[in-house]
Nucleic acid binder design. Structure first.
Lengths: 212, 212
DNA sequence: TAGATTGTTAATCGATTAACAATC
DNA sequence: TAGATTGTTAATCGATTAACAATC
């Protein structure tokens, strides 16, 4: 459990391992070697062994890794299934889509409330939950042990929303607005930036067209 | 226009430059130096100059970079504003949210149609566009010069949907299903994996809690 | 010209990969 | 025991940063 400083590159591969191991588990496969993982996931086998070893020796020499065990370990490392409580701020397109997507709850990320500033939305129900007024946000967050704030407001309001959530004690911000939201030390942020990934797609498309 | 092999790290920073330059432009700022960019974006100034030089000498010694010009260049490199035509497959939560999000069209990524297999959805209108039957997909894609296929179907159907789109001549796949979709050489994919970023957030939250 | 700032080479750092001894 | 495969050290590769000559 030493868990020194783990590089970002490693952390970004963990969800991929998690997805892969879930597949194997669903297929009823109980053991896997780094060389098989390497083949299936298109990663170098040394890299896989090295990555997994950042967190402890999960394998057995001469045997490989137990699929179920390894999956559990990665879930623990990532915090999947740890019962986080989240609120969504912004009940527009993205906010509502996230709310309706039930799979997050299955993995321990429960969305406990949604807020919006628009009087036309307040009071409506989405996915069985009422859209609440922003006025209720401070008290709600304080009283309900909210860990994560999901930002789904328009760009100009994103930073202020983050500031408010952080000041209310939220420890993580999952931001969908197209800005890099800033938070103080001790709080974590993930900026999603959907359109960035669309730009990168179109970059590659043009690159393929021209340089091939 | 030499544009050798550009590393992925560089490409992933381009959208961030684009967002930043758009901000500056909106503020009416006309020139910027790498050291100012470095300060504002929290990147190393050498890295910025090096990144921008991958694509040509956009700066002027002793002066810096012209904001408008540089932004245009980056847009050109990324393919923003090049009139791509996209279809969405899957009119569930994510599909509908993407359809309603009009900003993509402003940047040249036009969503020209949506398809779904669910008879209960087919025929309904979302954001002024009818949800079409999957049966219409092949002919539509062939007749309408579709460049990009957006996959918003449940996981088990993602790969087959991608295969179909690629066989119909689509050159880019923007995939929202939680699998790494595979395509043949010459076609580009961007896998979005929203939940991966949530896992990474919860990893960092636990890390902050425990190792600080 | 003097000052500023790029473009680019050289130095450093970190991540990936190869190799192999340890061991199940 | 022999075979397989991990954990880990050493080698390689690539990306980041520093330094500075070129030049506006």
């Amino acid at each position: 459990m030493q868990e020194n400083r783990i590089s970002d590159a490693v952390i970004h591969r963990l969800p991929k391992y998690y997805r892969y191991l879930s597949e194997l588990e669903a297929l009823g496969i109980e053991r896997v070697s780094s060389s098989r993982m390497s083949h299936d996931m298109n990663l170098n086998a040394s890299q896989i062994r090295r990555d997994l070893n950042c967190f402890g020796g999960f394998g057995q020499q001469g045997y490989g890794y137990q699929v179920g065990r390894l999956k559990q370990e990665i879930m623990r490392i990532l915090g999947i299934g740890s019962s986080y409580r989240a609120v969504i701020v912004g009940a527009g397109n993205i906010g509502q889509a996230l709310l309706k997507y039930r799979h997050f709850a299955d993995e321990g990320y429960e969305i406990v409330a949604v807020f919006d500033a628009d009087p036309n939305l307040i009071g409506r129900e989405v996915a069985g939950r009422p859209i609440r007024s922003m006025d209720e946000l401070p008290e709600f967050v304080k009283n309900n042990g909210v860990d994560i704030g999901i930002i789904a407001v328009p760009k100009p309001f994103a930073q202020k929303t983050a500031d408010m959530l952080v000041s209310l004690g939220v420890k993580g911000i999952w931001n969908f607005a197209p800005v890099d939201v800033q938070v103080r030390r001790g709080v974590s942020v993930e900026n999603v930036h959907l359109s960035d990934s669309l730009y990168i797609l179109s970059y590659h498309m043009r690159d393929q067209r021209e340089n091939n």
